[in-house]
Design a protein around this nucleic acid. Structure first.
Lengths: 237, 237
DNA sequence: GCGGGAATTTGATGCCGGACAAAGCGGGGT
DNA sequence: ACCCCGCTTTGTCCGGCATCAAATTCCCGC
């Protein structure tokens, strides 16, 4: 028997923005909450989409695997974000794996409940459309990025995105808030962990970042922006 | 004064699937039709999204331009498809250029009319969600492709997608139904027109394709599939 | 028929970044 | 506390593909 979710957790979830209090109660009433330890799959690519998910706490990595086993990290999910929901409204099959990279708490709604909720509360459908639209836009930008920019700039962009999404101010600069391996960065940028390692080492030598095991701190965000935007910026001998 | 659209044109448009006859009438009543000659921009990246569009006849290329002028072809639009609609429901700015690659007839709905229609007919919102979801999935697949596969396979995939979307049986094989330059293919695959030219030449030597000026005919689709899927297939000395 | 220009082809060159190899480092489990 | 395994680093090598540079073909308007 899952612990009963608290309606307050829905606050700040864009999917349920603008709903009346009783509607929120309706939504929460259908949800199940669950604890998922680090390194576990919430769902797997190819499975029938049994439920929509929302992350309350922790961090989830969405990974797509190609026919020959090549993997691509599509996105990271933070608290308050939905994931695996779209499959319910398209072909009913999860298009990627969702793996926890930290201990997580998630809410989930069975597919049938999800469609019924959307039926009952049209605002949810409108919100969903805006969210998915924004996501489409992001992915299109990444497509352009991977298609036309070189590795160093792609890595810079990827780190900046992560900072925006999960950056935490710390005395040495800005830290990315969850365990992140070079392999992960490679799979986000269409590169290899070797190249990522080299690049980070070079940046570390210039004092731009500090990186350790599954952990990255950006010391000079502006320098990273300069690399990402190809401003000549500070070129040193 | 634009010519009055015929309600029949909406048939087969997924966005309006499942609507009653009178609802379709409502939709058509709000639309304006327009003729757009080849090589013209229907809308441009960065413009405020004044309207949603549907293509009745012809072919439109959706191109995104990066900060340094690098271009990526996001998709080609054929008759019956919507385009430039999503911007209305997200940030209200077109995220890419839409350029006609043939003489076109398009329908358009002013942004305000579009949102009102969706308000009046909830089925449209549901349809839109499914459509956008499908599109997101496609783009994610292309992202994986560009990130992990090599140029030859990407070109093969791109051609196969085009065949599926705009293939026409012809005595020599299957022809892609609209003018398509090497530059276009390059911008679809994150490559250069030089590499595309070389690749097509090689395939032509093997009798897999026949290609001329802005025109491609696939003679052996199965061979292209073999390349795309990396089946060893027919390897010759 | 004749330019003019765009699309395409082909060659030569070089470099980015992927493949392989091997060693160091840390962490977590027992 | 120890061991073992996975993450990381660093070096070398090499190949695919972008880049630079012309030459050629073909379409189209005049």
């Amino acid at each position: 028997m899952p612990p009963p979710p608290d309606p307050a957790v829905l606050h700040g979830m864009p999917l349920f923005a603008g709903l009346e209090a009783d509607a929120l109660g309706d939504v929460v009433g259908q949800a199940r909450s669950r604890l998922v330890p680090r390194g576990t799959a919430v769902f797997s690519q190819g499975e029938p989409a049994a439920a929509g998910h929302a992350l309350i706490d922790g961090r989830v990595k969405i990974v797509q695997t190609g026919p020959d086993g090549q993997q691509v990290v599509l996105r990271f999910i933070g608290p308050g974000e939905m994931f695996g929901t779209l499959a319910i409204f398209t072909d009913g099959v999860y298009p990627a794996d969702a793996v926890t990279v930290a201990d997580c708490v998630e809410l989930s709604w069975p597919a049938a409940a999800m469609t019924a909720l959307m039926e009952r509360h049209p605002a949810i459908a409108r919100n969903a459309l805006a969210i998915v639209g924004g996501r489409l836009r992001e992915v299109q930008n990444r497509l352009r990025e991977v298609s036309t920019e070189r590795v160093e700039r792609r890595i810079a962009h990827a780190l900046l995105r992560l900072v925006r999404q999960a950056g935490r101010r710390v005395d040495a600069g800005v830290e990315i808030n969850f365990p992140l391996s070079r392999q992960d960065v490679a799979e986000m940028t269409g590169s290899t962990l070797h190249t990522v390692s080299r690049t980070l080492s070079a940046w570390e030598a210039q004092g731009i970042v500090e990186s350790g095991r599954q952990q990255v701190v950006i010391r000079k965000p502006h320098a990273l922006v300069a690399i990402a935007e190809d401003l000549p910026a500070a070129d040193r001998p």
